[in-house]
Amino acid sequence: MADDRESYSPNLIRMWRAFRTCKEMCKDRGYEMLEEDYQITLAEFAAKCGREDGDVDRSRMNFSCVPSEEMLRKYTAPPTAKNPDPQPEIGKIWVEFNGDENVGLKQLRDYMQHLVQGSYYNGVMVTTKPMTGMALRLLRGASGIKEGPMGGVEVFVEQELLVNITKHELVPTHVLLSKEEKEQLLKRYRLKETQLPRIQVTDPVAKYYGLRRGQVVKIIRHSETAGRYASYRWAI
């Protein structure tokens, strides 16, 4: 493997790692994904997205995913009298790798337009450098804005995706709870959701799973005495 790597440019290897993490992220969130898709080898990746000069063609790395049945169920609120047939709050996702030196308002708005035109529910944008401050400000208020997609846009820098942080031994398992499971939890412990410990939506793991405000995540840790220890956190 080691001598195999030397035949590729470091840039290509970087992009391969970011690409794999992206695929794994989509799989962990619950989108439909084939095994060979997220375990793509470097050689396959180079054949798929590499250019003749050894660099990466980022436009060929873009992909979209469809949520699996289980994920759709998880994101659907339990039916109520008012809303007997609730729609799942998730849909197709579009992942784009942007190769521009700087990403500003213009690129972000083009991207949002693309998401709306392709009727994607939300999007993930992977940039080479951090976005400008104004673009981030637009993003912060974007989830409710008419011009953006329904589920908003998430932005990652390539640097953050080189390593899949959830595979680190110190990162416990996070499991997202559905609305129904959350109700059961609050009922079981006779809590209000404000009485739960919190997790910020800007937390790296929360960003990885794409947590939204108000969702509850179950964190399963190893315990020497009890074997397993579960705690719950409320995303804010």
């Binding site: 700087n102 990403v103 500003g104 308002l105 213009k106 400008t132 401050g133 104004m134 673009a135």
Partner: peptide
């Protein structure tokens, strides 16, 4: 400054 930056990106 950010207006200038954004215009330069465009």
């Amino acid at each position: 400054d950010s207006l200038i930056e954004e215009r330069n990106i465009a």
